[in-house]
Amino acid sequence: MQCLRRLADHNDQLTILVSIHAPSSDILYLFDQLYILAKGGVCIYFDSPKNLKMKLEQNNREEFREDRPPIESYLKIACQGMLFD
């Protein structure tokens, strides 16, 4: 992933799409944008990785816990097929 990040940084004309099923927080922050899909292919998040926590807090998601990375909450939501209001 770091190699792809460097490649994208050195070529403004290049778009790289990657599908990762359970990324670590370190890997998430290598991306410019994230799409998180729930059951049925419904997008439940599209934004910068740095806004994951803020979006959970704004929507008062019960899945959000301070003691774990925000991506874990999104993965739980995605597996349950739940959407934001």
Rank of each mutant, 00 (worst) to 15 (best):
M1E: 03
M1R: 02
M1L: 11
C3E: 10
R5L: 05
R6M: 08
R6G: 01
R6V: 04
L7R: 10
L7W: 06
L7A: 07
A8H: 04
A8L: 03
A8E: 01
D9N: 10
D9V: 00
H10A: 09
H10P: 00
D12H: 13
D12F: 06
D12L: 10
Q13R: 15
L14M: 12
L14S: 06
I16K: 04
I16V: 15
I16M: 07
L17V: 15
L17I: 15
V18T: 08
V18K: 00
V18R: 00
S19P: 00
S19D: 10
I20N: 05
I20L: 10
I20C: 04
H21P: 10
P23H: 05
S24P: 05
S24L: 05
S24G: 12
S25K: 06
S25P: 06
S25T: 15
D26G: 12
D26Y: 01
I27G: 01
I27N: 03
I27V: 15
L28N: 08
L28I: 15
L28G: 06
Y29L: 11
F31W: 08
F31D: 00
F31N: 02
F31Q: 01
D32T: 13
Q33Y: 11
Q33H: 14
Q33I: 11
L34F: 06
Y35T: 05
A38L: 03
A38Q: 00
K39F: 05
G40E: 06
G40K: 01
G41D: 05
G41V: 01
G41R: 02
C43A: 11
C43M: 05
C43R: 04
I44Y: 12
Y45N: 10
Y45I: 14
F46Y: 14
D47P: 07
S48N: 12
P49W: 09
P49F: 12
K50R: 13
N51K: 13
K55M: 14
K55L: 13
E57R: 09
E57S: 03
E57A: 03
Q58I: 03
Q58V: 02
N59F: 13
N60R: 12
N60P: 00
N60A: 11
E62A: 13
E62F: 05
E62M: 08
E63P: 02
R65C: 09
E66F: 01
E66G: 08
E66K: 12
D67E: 13
D67W: 04
D67H: 12
R68K: 14
P69G: 05
P69T: 14
P70I: 13
P70M: 11
I71W: 05
I71V: 15
I71H: 02
I71P: 01
E72S: 13
Y74N: 04
Y74S: 07
Y74A: 07
L75N: 02
L75R: 02
K76G: 05
K76H: 13
K76T: 15
K76M: 09
I77L: 14
I77S: 04
I77T: 03
A78M: 10
A78T: 08
A78F: 14
Q80K: 14
Q80F: 09
G81T: 02
G81K: 02
M82K: 15
L83M: 09
L83Y: 08
F84R: 01
D85L: 09
